[in-house]
């Protein structure tokens, strides 16, 4: 017994001692980058679209840089947990974040304090515009019909796509404001995302869904659902039959995006290395094929261009949040 007690004490002291010693730091001017495994943080669950894109980049980065690259799903809090993990990671370029659309909206909604300025943006890898999607047997043939229906019975048309105040809810709120409607003229039923909303739509429990066309691709291609309009500058390739809301005279664009970022204060040489490597991957045929197979929109903006895009997104969504009366 005495022996085990002594051992216990010894082990504990050993632990204390080891805790006190700081782990050795590798000099990071970027010359030896990468010197350990890389991690891509995905703020959404395994199996979803963002996870699939993250895993594609992990695989390609591993081949390009020769270090094992792992995808870690840090889910929850409407994306806040994963985005925060990316911002607070050690700024040595070994931890990347697959940031999403929510980074542009969640600080405005009071979910998180994070903005794009807490990161060093590397490059945008995807953009999918918001779209209004209905059942194939819906009486509405165009977005004009939908607006007429909303005007005829305010608060009776039911839509979903995310939680109330979530990304796709803001997209449709902005659309309604641009069309001269009140935000409350549509009854938004909260769900956890596009997949459960599509189930509700197919079951006839709601009238329309606001999400990207890619998220409803299998139902659209099999003829169960139909895109009414897409909130983009131009029609989306692969869904050429779906008109833009601009064609109906409504000046509104809502873009969901995905992009890779690293923590602020990552040394410039490392950022440059990562940008160059990632740009090669994002412009490769393999990536184009992958995006096409998944019906994701291919959109690459590197460095400054990506930063400017993020700043513009921020301004756009702040305006919508204020106008819709969503600000806390």
């Amino acid at each position: 017994m005495a022996m085990s007690k002594a051992l216990a004490l010894f082990s504990f002291l050993q632990l204390c001692w080891l805790t006190a010693c700081a782990p050795p730091q590798t000099a990071s001017d970027g010359s030896d980058f990468p010197n350990r495994n890389l991690t891509i943080i995905c703020p959404w669950a395994a199996g979803g679209g963002t996870d699939r894109v993250s895993r594609f980049f992990a695989d390609q980065l591993e081949q390009a840089l020769g270090k094992p690259t792992i995808v870690t799903n840090r889910t929850g809090g409407g994306g806040a947990v994963g985005h925060s993990a990316g911002a607070t990671a050690k700024p040595d370029g070994h931890t990347l974040l697959m940031g999403t659309f929510e980074l542009s909206t969640m600080h405005g909604m009071g979910i998180s304090h994070l903005t794009h300025e807490d990161y060093e943006p590397l490059l945008q890898v995807n953009a999918d515009a918001a779209a209004i999607i209905v059942r194939s047997d819906s009486p509405w043939a165009s977005v004009g019909d939908l607006i007429e229906a909303i005007k005829a019975a305010p608060g009776q048309v039911k839509m979903s796509g995310t939680a109330t105040g979530g990304a796709w809810d803001l997209a449709r709120a902005g659309f309604q404001l641009a069309a001269g409607l009140d935000v409350k003229d549509v009854l938004w039923v909260p769900t956890e995302g596009s997949a459960p909303s599509i189930v509700e739509l197919l079951g006839g429990h709601i009238d329309a869904v606001c999400c990207s066309l890619a998220e409803a691709a299998s139902q659209i291609e099999s003829g169960q659902l139909r895109g009414l309009a897409v909130m983009a500058e131009d029609r989306v390739s692969g869904f050429d039959g779906v008109p833009t809301v601009k064609e109906a005279g409504i000046d509104w664009v809502a873009m969901g995006w995905r992009g890779l970022l690293v923590a602020k204060d990552t040394p410039a040489p490392i950022v440059t290395t990562l940008r160059e490597t990632l740009q090669t991957i994002a412009e490769s045929d393999a990536y184009l094929t992958f995006m096409k197979q998944n019906r994701f929109g291919h959109e690459v903006k590197v460095g400054e261009a990506f930063s400017d895009f993020l700043a513009a997104q921020d301004a756009q969504w702040q305006k919508v949040i204020a106008a819709a009366g969503y600000a806390k």
């Binding site: 929850g76 809090g77 409407g78 947990v81 979910i111 998180s112 109330t164 909260p190």
Partner: peptide
């Protein structure tokens, strides 16, 4: 505990990011 999935309000999170995930 965490961000309420219906309207996005934080509940019992005490300003901790980890707790927002529930």
């Amino acid at each position: 505990i965490g961000i309420d999935t219906s309207v996005g309000t934080p509940r019992f999170t005490f300003d901790s990011v980890a707790l927002t995930g529930g």
